[in-house]
Design a binder for these strands. Structure first.
Length: 189
DNA sequence: AGGATGATGGACT
DNA sequence: GTCCATCATCCTA
C-alpha cells in the first residue's frame, strides 16, 4: 500500500483479503510525545458473526463495539487480564470484522521500546508486546487509525514481497481457517 | 529448543 | 466458576 487511499480501500473489504494487504504498512505511535514506527509483518483476520473465533461472533457488545465501527477504527481489548491487544476494524460499518495486529519490525524508536518493554530482544513479536511497545492501552480504544492526526495511526509502507498464511494462534475454534498472515523471508537452501 | 505454569481481569454460562 | 485472539520465567534435555 503506497497511499492512504489504498490502505483505506483495503480495509473496506473482507478481513481475510484486507489482512495480507496490511503487511508492510506502518503502525505509528506518538504516545507520550515519543515516536515509534512499526512495519507490520504479522496479522490475523477475524470475521465477526461468520467466525466462531471472533470476539464479535455473538454480536455487538460494549467490549467489541469499536470493531463494528468504520474500517480503520482501533479496537483494543485486555487479554488474559494482563496484556492489551490491538485490532483495526475492517469491512462495512456495523458488521464486526477486524484484523489483529500481531507483530512487526521496528523502523523507529527502538530505544523507547526497549525502555517500555524492559528488555533488548523480542520487542514486537506478539500482540501484547506490540501494544506495550507502542504504549497502546484501553484508553486508545475507538480512535481512528486512518486520521493523520491520531496518536496511533496507520500509514502506507512497502508491501510484503512474500506472504504466508497459517492457522491463527491461541484459538480453539475455526482452526481450519488459515487467516494468520505473515511476511515470509526467502531462505537460501 | 521446547514444554509447563502462573499472573490476572473481564465476558459469559 | 470457566474460558480465554498472551507472555515471561522456570524447568528438562
Amino acid at each position: 500500500m503506497t497511499s492512504l487511499e489504498e490502505l483505506s480501500e483495503a480495509l473496506a473489504g473482507p478481513p481475510e483479503e484486507a489482512a495480507p494487504r496490511l503487511l508492510g504498512a506502518h503502525l505509528v505511535s506518538e504516545v507520550d510525545r515519543k515516536t515509534v514506527r512499526l512495519r507490520i509483518t504479522e496479522v490475523e483476520a477475524y470475521k465477526g458473526s461468520d467466525d466462531p473465533a471472533s470476539h464479535a461472533f455473538g454480536g455487538r457488545t460494549t467490549r467489541n463495539e469499536s470493531m463494528f465501527r468504520s474500517p480503520g477504527t482501533l479496537y483494543v481489548y485486555r487479554s488474559y487480564g494482563i496484556h492489551n491487544c490491538a485490532n483495526t476494524a475492517a469491512g462495512p460499518e456495523g458488521i464486526g470484522w477486524g484484523i489483529l495486529l500481531r507483530g512487526g519490525h521496528l523502523v523507529e524508536g527502538e530505544g523507547i521500546v526497549r525502555r517500555r518493554r524492559g528488555r533488548r530482544d523480542n520487542l514486537t513479536n506478539g500482540p501484547g508486546k506490540v501494544c506495550q511497545a507502542l504504549g497502546i492501552d484501553i484508553s486508545h480504544n475507538g480512535l481512528d487509525l486512518l486520521q493523520s492526526g491520531s496518536e496511533i495511526r496507520l500509514e502506507p509502507g512497502s508491501p510484503a514481497e512474500l506472504i504466508m498464511a497459517t492457522p491463527r494462534i491461541g484459538i480453539s475454534r475455526a482452526r481450519e481457517r488459515a487467516w494468520r498472515f505473515i511476511e515470509a523471508t526467502a531462505v537460501s537452501v
